[in-house]
Simulated assay, not measured.
Amino acid sequence: MTVQVRQIGVGKADRKAFVDIQFRLNEGDPNWVPPLKDEVHGLIDPRKNPWFGHGEAAFFLAERGGRAVGRISAQVDSLVIAAPVEQGGGPGTGHWGMIEAEDGETAAALIAAAEGWLRGKGMTRSIGPISISIWDEPGLLVQGFDHPPTVMMGHHQPTYQAWVEAAGYAGVKDLNAYDLRIDKPFPDLVQRIVSSGERNTRIRVRRVDKKKFAEEAALILGILNDAWGDNWGFVPLTPDEITYVGKKLRPIVFEDLIMVAEVEGEPVAFMITLPDLNEKLRGFGGSLLPFNWAKLLWWLRRPKVRTMRVPLMGVVKRLQATRLASQLAFMMIEYIRRESVSRYGATRGEIGWILEDNQGMVSIARMVGGEVNKVYRLYQKAL
Rank of each mutant, 00 (worst) to 15 (best):
D209I: 04
D230R: 12
G197H: 00
M153F: 01
A269D: 04
E241M: 09
F254M: 02
P251C: 07
G233F: 07
P267G: 10
H155W: 10
N278R: 06
G233W: 05
G286D: 04
D209E: 14
T201L: 13
V253M: 07
G285R: 13
A227V: 06
A166N: 07
W163Y: 04
G286A: 07
E264R: 14
K247Q: 07
V235I: 15
K247L: 05
N200Q: 03
G233Q: 12
Y160F: 13
L281G: 12
I193S: 06
N225P: 04
P158M: 03
W163R: 05
K248C: 02
G168M: 09
D276K: 03
L237W: 04
T243W: 00
I193P: 04
D179F: 11
L180T: 08
F284Y: 15
E215D: 15
D174W: 11
I272S: 00
K280Q: 13
G168F: 05
P187L: 14
I203F: 05
I242W: 02
G197Q: 04
D230T: 09
P275G: 06
G286R: 08
G168A: 09
L281I: 08
A218G: 09
R282H: 11
V194D: 02
R204C: 08
I272Y: 00
G283L: 12
G222L: 13
R192H: 08
V245D: 02
F186L: 12
E241P: 06
N231M: 12
